[in-house]
Simulated assay, not measured.
Amino acid sequence: MKRIIKKPNIRKSEILNTAKLLFMHEGYEDTSIEKIIYQLKIAKGTFYHYFKTKEHLLDNLVNDMTEEIMPNIIDCLENSHLNAVEKLNKIFILSRNIKAENVQLVLPLLKLLYNSNNVLMRYKMFNSNKRLVTPVIAKIIEQGNNEKIFCVEYVDETANLIMVIGNSFTEATSDILLSDYEKDEKIKRIERELKAYESVVCRILGAENGLISIVDDNIVSIFVKQ
Results as ranks from 00 to 15, higher is better:
I74V: 10
S179T: 00
L105H: 09
K148E: 15
R11H: 02
N63F: 13
S174V: 04
K2H: 15
A207I: 04
E86K: 11
K225I: 01
Y38Q: 14
D180R: 03
P108I: 01
L57P: 06
G45S: 14
M121T: 15
V119G: 05
F169P: 00
A196H: 06
L58V: 10
D75C: 07
I5R: 14
T66G: 01
I42R: 11
K90M: 14
R122D: 14
I222S: 00
A159L: 10
L194R: 08
N72R: 04
A207K: 08
L161A: 09
M65V: 03
E29F: 04
S221M: 00
A19E: 00
A100R: 09
N63L: 12
R131Y: 11
I74A: 02
A172H: 08
M121K: 15
H25R: 06
Q143V: 05
V106W: 13
M163W: 08
K183H: 09
I4M: 13
I212L: 10
E78Q: 06
P71R: 01
F23Y: 15
I214H: 02
N118F: 02
L105I: 10
K12P: 00
K130V: 09
I36F: 05
L113F: 05
D217R: 08
T53C: 04
L120G: 09
S213Y: 04
K124C: 10
E185R: 14
V215W: 07
N167M: 03
I33W: 07
E171I: 10
A100Y: 06
M24V: 10
S179F: 12
T134V: 12
L113Q: 05
F223W: 01
F169W: 06
R131V: 03
D75Q: 07
N97A: 13
E153P: 02
I141S: 06
T158S: 12
L177V: 05
L112F: 11
N118C: 02
V136M: 07
H25C: 00
V220M: 05
I4H: 10
K6W: 04
K44W: 07
S221D: 05
D64Q: 07
C76R: 04
F126W: 09
R11C: 00
Y38V: 12
T170N: 13
T173F: 05
E29T: 11
L58H: 09
P135D: 08
T134H: 04
K111R: 09
L40C: 07
D156K: 15
S116V: 13
Q104G: 07
E67S: 06
K35M: 13
V152M: 05
V85T: 08
Y181T: 00
S128W: 09
A43Q: 10
N218Q: 08
V164T: 06
V200G: 02
A172F: 08
D75S: 10
N17Y: 01
Y123H: 14
Q104E: 15
R203A: 12
Y28D: 08
E208C: 02
F169M: 13
V215H: 05
V152I: 09
S174L: 03
L16N: 05
